[in-house]
Design a binder for these strands. Sequence first.
DNA 1: CCAGCGATCGAT
DNA 2: TCGATCGCTGGG
Length: 203
Amino acid sequence: MKKLTREFYNRDSVIVARELLGKVLVHEVEGQKVAAKIVEAEAYMGIEDRAAHSYGGKRTPRVEVMYGDPGFSYIFIIYGMHYCFNIVTREKGTPQAVLLRAAEPLQGIEQMAQTRYKKPYGQLTKSQRKGLTNGPGKLCKALSINKNFNGMDLCGDELYIEEGEPQEFNIITTTRVGIDYAGEAREYPWRFYIEGNEYVSVK
DNA sequence: CCAGCGATCGAT
DNA sequence: TCGATCGCTGGG
């Protein structure tokens, strides 16, 4: 299966966010593949985007990786306890990113169930099954992605995104979640998800 | 040095 | 609907 290239990520976040739908996020843990199909993503457009961490050119140690090359991970902690996984887009110096908000488990599902709930998949309730990866913090937990993966090259062999199977789906475009502080930017249609997919976080 | 806050989650 | 929980940030 083909891995996404640096060039794929070297475009505006709104384009990359849309095109990431249906692609497969892979984390190879000790030779074991844990993989999930991306079903929801949001674009953060950088300097001009009040909702972005790099808004107004803000440049701090946390945000630094956003100013680097495309195709690297930007991971931050939210609400003191959850991780959010982002992918840096556009060329060096243009601090944009795409936030992965939800995914559908494909491979290593037992691993995910164990990591999230300390139980075999078979013992999970229906709601727990859906809850494996239907949110930004949840998908990080399920794929064992934490702060140690900040600044990692997604064109490498440990954490990456691959093409996935060809498929048909409709894309829903809406406003982003949890950015009420962002003024006018809260109205921007920069959230994308696969219509009808049960792993989407908020319909 | 330190207080306030947040791109969330899970239980109620 | 609400409490948990803590790294990052900016101001002093």
